[in-house]
Amino acid sequence: MSAAAKRVAASSLNWAKVGEKLTSVHASDLGRLRGQNSTFTAQVDQLPADLPKVDFAALKKALPTHAATIDSLQKQYEAVKIPYGEVPKEYLDEIKQWQEYNETRIRLHEMKVADGLEQAKKVEAKWKSAPPVEHFDRQHFAEYFPQHFYDLRYQERIPDPCSIGLNETDAFQQRFSDYKVLRRPDKVDDH
């Protein structure tokens, strides 16, 4: 194995762990990414660890008039150092922020799932205690379907037979809470 391949192998990705964290929707994307990584790794394996050696002395003999230029090129070529695995700090900070954002999203999703499970348990408990639908009477409809059937004896609702949304806000209850509000001042209260 070449030195370049050893460097890449030292920082290889655990594909099984990544596959566990992704949903089945992203399986094709993970397969495509894994294929691209394999192609890249194969190309890196074929490359030598260091830059190829150039015989600058032979070049100077072949091109004596350009000796100064070849000297300059030799200094530049030998000064080239390509570090491996150094990611700029601003990119690392951006990755860290992205990870924190995704972890927060995951925690929020887990909280929503837990709340949904609690609500589902309440609904299941409600319907387990319900009598069979064939035995429902008017009181049961108001208890189990309060959005469609209401009992004005204990619910502060306005009859809304056309379902136009009178009970979605409390504007009607506030406006008509005092029955004297709409009386005209010239009317005399004589009864």
Rank of each mutant, 00 (worst) to 15 (best):
G85A: 07
Q97G: 12
H109K: 03
S72Q: 12
P83C: 06
A114P: 00
E94R: 14
D115H: 12
A114S: 04
L108R: 10
V80A: 00
L117G: 01
D71W: 09
K121R: 13
E100L: 13
T69I: 14
L117P: 00
P83N: 13
L63C: 14
Y91A: 01
L92T: 11
E78W: 07
V113K: 10
V123H: 05
I70W: 07
R105Q: 07
L73M: 14
G116I: 06
D115Y: 10
V87I: 15
P88K: 12
E118V: 11
D93P: 01
A68N: 09
E118Y: 13
Q97Y: 13
K61H: 14
T65A: 12
V87S: 01
E110P: 01
D71R: 07
I82M: 04
E94Y: 14
K89C: 01
E78Q: 14
K122Y: 13
A79K: 09
N102F: 12
E78C: 03
L108C: 02
Y91S: 01
K96D: 04
G116K: 08
E110T: 05
L117A: 04
H109M: 02
M111T: 09
I95D: 08
E86R: 04
K121P: 00
A62L: 11
P88Y: 07
R107W: 04
Q99W: 12
E110W: 09
E124Q: 13
E86D: 08
E78R: 08
E86F: 06
E90K: 06
L108F: 09
Y77R: 01
M111N: 06
L63V: 15
K121L: 05
I70M: 06
M111R: 14
V80Q: 00
L92M: 08
K122D: 09
E94L: 13
E124C: 03
V113W: 06
A62Y: 07
